[in-house]
Design a protein around this nucleic acid. Structure first.
Length: 912
RNA sequence: GGGCAUUUAGCUCAGUUGGUUAGAGCGCUACACUCACAUUGUAGAGGCCAGAGGUUCAAGUCCUCUAAUGCCCACCA
């Protein structure tokens, strides 16, 4: 077996095994009534995406869960796929086209979409290849895309159903408008960020006396062109007389009234507010309430429009400056104060959002939210960590209607059709802003000429005209991804071809609801909450039972990793340098439940080193393994053979560890599970077990135990480090099949023996103490020394004598004597282990003072502890109120401490 | 303005229902490469658990307040 290299090289193994797994269909999952299902749907990455550390963490966790449950005997499905990511993808393709000097309008809608599809075919699978590098065991035959024809049927179905239920409506409101992407956005897509802006105080002259003014404060002076009133609080004494007066809007010369509204905060600014109903959500409400005029002064591209008079064509921020200058010139800019404000930003291009009046489609959310709130409150869905429940509920309980129409081309076209004839003849076509606002939204449903349909109608059902055209807008990307947990299973079955339906309907029944959703906190509102609503609305069942929210991956300074900051650690680079196993293990071992991860490249050394350690321990075992001996049945063997303390110890430790690992899994404490396996293997199996048995490695007991522990350990570790465990699995004698097909080791309770564990560890501590003594006087390891011990109990004496050779080997001794009299030998340095006094015979001169000082320090330290324990045991309240077990423990601790102290004191006294 | 999280060794972090002398990885110090592994081994140093109160027989852990940092939410013109 010396053909095994001494360093593990992931490059030799990872791609090889992945190809084999996939080739053999080991990731496939099919309904199997004899098994319990376990299913996860992947949070579909954007087709534009490339794998970053966040994905690596997210998918490593999912793969660990899937592999674990697969080995636990569940029919485990990991559903993969990608998201068409409307705005993001359109932006990317437009950017690529810009290099050729092309704009989307040059191509036209159809050609442009064709081009996006081409782009998707060419680059869209990049992230899937990268997931495979990571080891992701998705059922790739099922890979879905939110724009797939079958998936689109679900989107249309849902739109139509919600519309028919009256939960979708069209209307004109102030929405978040991105002037760069030129589309509406939902509130979630326009996160607020702090900006350092100014508060400008503008003077609006009275019509009756232009030398007098009302001063208003604003952060967006360019919107003043659209002002149609000034509002004050009716309780505000300063303006009591002014209410009802008329002002002349500067630069525009529009006459605007001073109105009274309770909404106005008297303490802010001057207490007088300019009202721009077409450009601010609050002003919009006031506009409606006071029947003001809605003047839209901006074009969709963020430039001022013809309503802006002289400022027509200027960019909104340019106009701001020019308007301020003009006002200043006229003496109408009273002052400018720095003022921090927060403004919405486009989550795709980070452009500052313009609150903008426009006609959009909305989903009424309150009725959908109600059951979704219930489901979580009743515990049908559980969040891990728990605190996200509150975040979820908080949002759900204050949910706003969802703007779902987008003015882009890449996406699901809204299934609404218009009959030109009906629209022309009727008055349902909404032409000006004012009537838009007043039009009752529910009317959309009955509106003449508006047809909502699963397929494009040939002719108008009302008038029979064939002059029908579809709504230009597409749906929000999230309007398709919220269906992911069931639409990926070809929901609705009735809408699919009979053949497809026959093939897939059982899958939906078997795998839905899914088991666990693994995701990041950023998309709780975007996605998680909406999936819960969709699942309950369309499947009458929650989409998943557990939601595990992991942390955000950050750099060492706590900054989010982003391309623009240049602080990215590329997972593929790490895989290339350290291996996918190392990447996975390192990430998991530092990710405690839901905490953010601060990452530097060096962290991955831990995983790499661990892989190498496993590799070399396996190498030792394989080089010394007699396959004939080793493969005995452990259970039978264990019962029959007197295995000895060390073998029994490692078996007990293994199963103790396994038990805790399993608990880690069930509580979503992956770091704990990973670290338990790590420290068991390294610090118990390698540092002690293998070192101890090395001397007698051909012994049958040792053969069986080392082989079994290795073999079972590999299976337990496989979910975390799939590649190296598979590689070594195949080096084991008689290994058939893939490790993926093995079961996760069953916990053998009868092997766990805590008392025995303690006994063995007390033996090891004798070794440690001797090593310690050697180090104290600097005796090199190759120099053999003689040690005498005096065990204070008969059982310890028996143990030490029986395992004398273990101590001799591990502490590199010439000889170990067991003293028959409790008397300090001459010329020795001393130490104590549990119930054992230890004397290392020194050939040189023992510095008695130094030795005495060392012992004295130790005595003082233990004395303090002893006092603390005595005090506790003397405490009446403690004795009365502490549980018996704790008191017992304290007593035992005190006894031991007293014993040790007496022994140390004797040692010290005998020193002359 | 509201909420959440974090604060434990030089660094990055574990520490579950309160219960012996608070742990890990990295880094550091000393020693050790013919030995499965120097991506290693052995031994060691290093902690008023952010601060102040409180509850309790017992607090890193529970409660209150304070401070710093980060994140999320909110119609702060």
């Amino acid at each position: 077996m010396n053909t095994i290299p001494s360093r593990y090289n992931p490059k030799d193994t990872e791609d090889k095994w992945y190809a084999l797994w996939q080739g053999r269909g080991l990731f496939r999952a099919c309904p199997d009534k004899s098994k319990k299902p376990f299913s996860i749907v992947i949070p579909p990455p954007n087709v534009t995406g490339i794998l970053h550390m966040g994905h690596a963490l997210n998918n490593a966790i999912q793969d660990i869960l899937i592999r674990y449950h697969r080995m636990k005997g569940h029919e485990s499905l990991w559903m993969p796929g990608t998201d068409h990511a409307g705005i993001a993808t359109q932006n990317v393709v437009e950017k690529a086209m810009a290099k050729e000097g092309l704009r989307r309008n040059d191509l036209g809608r159809e050609k442009f979409i064709e081009r996006v599809w081409q782009w998707k075919e060419q680059y869209g699978s990049a992230i899937i290849k990268q997931l495979k590098k990571l080891g992701a065991s998705c059922d790739w035959q099922r890979v879905r895309f939110t724009m797939d024809a079958e998936y689109s049927k679900a989107v249309v179905e849902v739109f139509v159903r919600l519309f028919e239920k009256g939960l979708i409506y069209q209307g004109s409101y102030i929405i978040n408008w991105c002037p760069r992407c030129q589309t509406a956005l939902s509130d979630e897509e326009a996160p607020h960020h702090e900006l350092q802006g100014n508060l400008y105080y503008l003077k609006y002259p009275y019509k009756s006396d232009p030398s007098k003014f009302v001063v208003v404060a604003t952060t967006r002076p360019e919107t003043m062109l659209g002002d149609t009133a000034v509002a004050v609080n009716p309780k505000d004494k300063r303006y009591k007389k002014a209410i009802g007066e008329t002002l002349v809007l500067p630069l525009v010369n529009r006459e605007i009234p001073i109105i009274a509204d309770e909404m106005i905060d008297m303490k802010f600014g001057t207490g007088a507010v300019k009202v721009t109903p077409a450009h601010d959500p609050n002003d919009y409400l006031m506009g409606k309430k006071h029947r003001l005029e809605f003047v839209n002064v901006m074009s969709p591209n963020g430039k001022m429009n013809e309503q802006a008079g002289d400022y027509n064509g200027m960019d909104r921020f340019e106009a701001r400056q020019v308007i301020l200058e003009d006002l200043k010139e006229q003496g109408l800019l009273e002052k400018t104060e720095p003022h921090p404000l927060s403004a919405g930003h486009c989550y795709r291009c980070h452009t500052i959002i313009e609150p903008y009046l426009s006609k959009q489609w909305f989903v009424k959310m309150k009725p959908l939210a109600k059951p979704a709130i219930e489901a979580v409150k009743k515990g049908k869905i559980k969040f891990y960590p728990k605190r996200w429940t509150k975040v979820y509920l908080g949002w759900m309980e204050n949910i706003q209607d969802w703007c779902i129409s987008r003015q882009i081309w890449w996406g699901h076209r809204i299934p609404v059709y218009y009959c030109r004839k009906c629209l022309d003849s009727g008055n349902s076509q909404i032409s000006n802003a004012k009537s838009q606002i007043n039009s009752k939204l529910q009317n959309t449903k009955q509106a003449q000429g508006v047809i909502v349909s699963r397929a494009k109608p040939d002719k108008c059902p009302k008038c029979g005209s064939a002059d029908i055209y579809q709504d230009e807008d597409v749906l929000d990307t999230w309007f398709s991804s919220w269906l992911w947990p069931f639409a990926t299973f070809y929901w609705p079955p009735e809408a699919q071809s009979p053949e497809l339906r026959a093939r897939t309907e059982a899958d939906l029944k078997y795998f839905y609801p899914t088991s666990t959703l693994v995701t990041a906190p950023e998309i709780i509102f975007f996605w998680v909450a909406r999936m819960i609503m969709a699942g309950l609305e369309f499947m009458q069942e929650v989409p998943f039972k557990d939601v595990y929210i992991h942390g955000t991956v950050r750099d060492v300074e706590g900054k989010k990793m982003s391309k623009s900051l240049g602080n990215i650690i590329d997972p593929l680079e790490i895989i290339d340098e350290y291996g996918a196993d190392a990447l996975r293990f390192s990430l998991i071992s530092i990710t405690s439940q839901g905490q953010d991860v601060y990452l530097s490249k060096e962290r991955f050394e831990q995983g790499r080193n661990f892989a190498n350690k496993i590799w070399n321990a396996s190498r030792l075992i394989l080089m010394n393994l007699d396959p004939g001996q080793a493969r005995a049945d452990l259970c039978v063997f264990f019962k029959k053979e007197p295995l000895g303390v060390v073998n029994r110890w490692i078996l007990s430790r293994f199963y103790s560890t396994l038990k805790e690992v399993q608990r880690g899994f069930s509580e979503y404490r992956f770091n704990e599970a990973a670290n338990l396996l790590y420290s068991f293997f390294w610090h118990e199996f390698c540092d002690w077990y293998l070192e101890v048995i090395k001397a007698d490695i051909r012994n049958t007991h040792n053969q069986v135990v080392m082989y079994k522990v290795l073999e079972k350990f590999l299976r337990a570790l496989h979910p975390f480090m799939p590649f190296i465990t598979e590689e070594i699995w195949h080096l084991l004698p008689g290994a058939t099949d893939s490790i993926m097909c093995q079961s996760w080791p069953h916990i053998q309770e009868q092997v766990i023996d805590k008392k025995l564990e303690k006994e063995a560890e007390s033996l090891f501590s004798v070794v440690t103490q001797i090593r310690n003594l050697r180090a104290q006087i600097g005796i090199a390891l190759d120099k053999k020394v003689v040690v005498s011990v005096y065990p204070h109990t008969a059982s310890k004496k028996k143990l030490v004598e029986e395992y004398a050779s273990l101590v001799v080997n591990m502490a590199k001794l010439e000889a170990l004597h067991s003293l028959s009299r409790n008397k300090r030998p001459a010329r020795a340095i001393s130490s104590v282990a549990e119930d054992v006094d230890i004397y290392l015979h020194s050939e040189g001169i023992v510095d008695a003072d130094q030795e005495k000082e060392k012992l004295t320090l130790k005595i003082q330290e233990l004395h303090k502890l002893k006092q603390a324990k005595e005090a506790r045991l003397k405490n009446h309240d403690f004795m009365e109120r502490a549980p018996a077990g704790v008191v017992e423990k304290e007593k035992a601790g005190l006894d031991e401490l007293s014993g040790t102290l007496t022994r140390l004191e004797k040692m010290s006294k005998e020193l002359t």
